[in-house]
Measured scan of single mutants.
Amino acid sequence: DIIVVALYDYEAIHHEDLSFQKGDQMVVLEESGEWWKARSLATRKEGYIPSNYVARVD
């Protein structure tokens, strides 16, 4: 699995987006352009995240 960590807070604009806080970790389900589908490890919610707001966890 690809795990990413949020570098900034993000508040969902569209209903299919996933809100998150800086430091939250998410599993990337699908990488497509600038918006990736991800699942929050904390809340288990799924949605689209801006890929430039996150960094991969090695």
Rank of each mutant, 00 (worst) to 15 (best):
K45G: 12
S51D: 03
D9M: 07
S40D: 11
G23E: 09
Y8H: 12
A6M: 01
I49R: 01
A6L: 00
Y10G: 00
G47F: 01
S51R: 13
H14F: 05
I49W: 00
W35T: 15
Y48N: 15
S40V: 10
D17L: 10
K37C: 15
K22T: 13
G23Q: 01
Q21P: 01
L41H: 07
Y53V: 04
A6T: 02
D9S: 10
V28C: 11
M26C: 02
V54D: 01
L7W: 02
V27E: 13
H14Y: 09
Q25N: 11
N52E: 12
E11V: 10
V27Y: 04
L29A: 06
M26T: 01
V28D: 02
I3W: 03
Q25K: 10
E30Q: 12
I3L: 08
E46L: 09
I2C: 05
P50W: 08
G47M: 00
H15W: 12
K45I: 08
I3V: 07
V57H: 09
L7M: 12
A38C: 15
E31T: 07
D9L: 02
D17H: 14
Y10V: 02
P50D: 12
E46Y: 02
V5W: 03
S40K: 08
D58Y: 12
D24Q: 09
Y53C: 09
I49Y: 01
S19C: 10
R39K: 15
S32F: 15
L29R: 07
A12Q: 04
S32G: 13
V5C: 11
W35M: 14
E16Q: 12
A42E: 13
N52Y: 04
E46S: 06
S40I: 11
A12N: 06
S19M: 03
E16N: 07
R56A: 09
K45Y: 08
Q25D: 04
K45T: 14
D1G: 14
I2Y: 13
R44Y: 09
L41K: 14
N52W: 09
G23K: 04
A12P: 15
F20W: 00
M26Y: 03
S51M: 13
V57P: 07
E30M: 07
A38G: 07
S32D: 13
S40F: 06
A12T: 05
Q25M: 07
T43P: 02
L7G: 03
I2V: 02
E16K: 09
Y48Q: 12
W35N: 15
A6N: 01
S51F: 10
R44Q: 14
G47D: 01
E16H: 12
R44V: 10
E16T: 10
N52G: 10
A55W: 07
D24V: 04
Y53E: 00
Q25T: 13
E16Y: 14
P50S: 06
D9T: 03
D58H: 07
I2T: 04
S51Q: 14
V57T: 13
S19F: 05
D9R: 06
Q25S: 05
E46C: 11
R39C: 05
N52F: 04
H15T: 15
H14K: 11
N52L: 07
A12V: 03
G23A: 06
D1N: 14
L7S: 10
H14M: 08
E16L: 11
L7Q: 05
F20Q: 01
Q21F: 15
H15M: 11
G33W: 02
A6G: 10
P50L: 09
K45M: 14
N52D: 12
V27C: 15
Q25H: 03
V54F: 02
G23T: 02
E16R: 13
I2S: 06
A42L: 11
L7T: 13
K22H: 03
L41S: 11
V27H: 03
S51I: 11
W35D: 09
V54Q: 01
K22L: 05
H15D: 03
Q25I: 04
R39T: 08
Y53D: 01
K37H: 15
M26K: 00
D17S: 12
G33I: 04
S19K: 10
G47V: 00
Y10S: 04
A42V: 15
Y48F: 13
P50N: 08
I49A: 01
I49L: 06
Y53T: 05
A38F: 01
S19T: 14
Y8K: 08
V4L: 10
I49K: 01
Y10N: 01
S40C: 10
I49V: 12
D58F: 02
E31C: 05
S19V: 06
L29V: 10
M26R: 00
V27R: 08
I49P: 01
K22G: 04
V5Q: 11
A42Q: 05
D17E: 15
R44K: 15
Y10L: 06
I3K: 10
V54Y: 01
S19N: 05
I2F: 07
V27G: 04
S51P: 13
I2L: 06
I2K: 10
A38W: 00
D17G: 10
G47K: 00
T43F: 03
I49D: 00
R44W: 06
T43V: 05
D24G: 02
K22R: 11
L29F: 06
P50E: 01
G47L: 00
I3C: 04
Y48S: 13
I49T: 01
S19Y: 04
V4T: 02
R56S: 10
L29N: 06
V28L: 13
D17V: 08
A55E: 14
A12R: 08
S32V: 14
D17A: 11
D24A: 12
E31P: 15
L29W: 08
R56C: 14
A12K: 15
H15N: 15
